[in-house]
């Protein structure tokens, strides 16, 4: 990660071991063979193979498209000076909430399944962090770290 001027920064994001070009290449490779088979059978009269192959490849392509759309998603907390900013990216939507560092409160709330939900709040605003990309232990550890860095601790 590139160095930044923040006092503290944590970014949670998915791990993607396949590049965008790689995604296209995998789909193209599978689609070319599958279509070759389906078109071949269509030419000898078994044309009903083709729509099934098409549907299947659409599903495959959509799966990779879904991964592609969310590959750059992230959730971040940046503490710089008096500010604590929580930023979230979900596909094209980027949202940011800025709290005053010394008024922000860090809370862990237990969910019915026993998992912990990490919440940051201040002045009537509340935002959840770490639900998508972090597991329970990671959220608990992060809460511990955040409580040492923000003003009011609960």
């Amino acid at each position: 990660m590139a160095p930044c001027m923040a006092d503290y920064r944590v970014i949670a994001r998915p791990n993607c071991s396949l590049s965008p070009r790689g995604r296209v290449a995998v789909v193209a490779l599978i689609a070319s063979f599958s279509l070759l088979v389906a078109i071949g059978f269509s030419l000898i009269g078994a044309w009903l193979v083709l729509p099934f192959a098409g549907l299947e490849l659409l599903a495959l392509a959509y799966a990779f498209y879904h991964i592609h759309c969310h590959a750059e998603d992230y959730e971040s907390i940046t503490i710089a000076g008096d500010h604590l900013a929580v930023e979230k990216r979900d596909y094209k939507n980027v949202s940011q909430i800025v709290f005053n560092r010394y008024w922000a409160r860090v809370t862990l709330r237990e969910l019915p399944g026993g998992e912990q939900c990490l919440l940051l709040r201040s002045h009537g605003k509340e935002v959840e962090f770490g639900r998508r990309f972090m597991d329970n232990q990671q959220r608990i550890a992060l809460a511990r770290q955040l409580k040492q860095r923000v003003g009011v601790v609960t």
Binding site: M1, P3, C4, A6, D7, Y8, R9, V10, I11, A12, R13, P14, N15, H70, D73, L111, P112, G113, E115, C117, R131, R132, F133, M134, D135, N136, Q138, L142
Partner: peptide
């Protein structure tokens, strides 16, 4: 301080029981 944590998207944290 700056660090990155990576995991994959899974929105199934609060699993029901039974």
């Amino acid at each position: 301080m700056s660090y990155t944590t990576t995991a994959h998207h899974d929105a199934h944290e609060d699993h029901p029981s039974g």
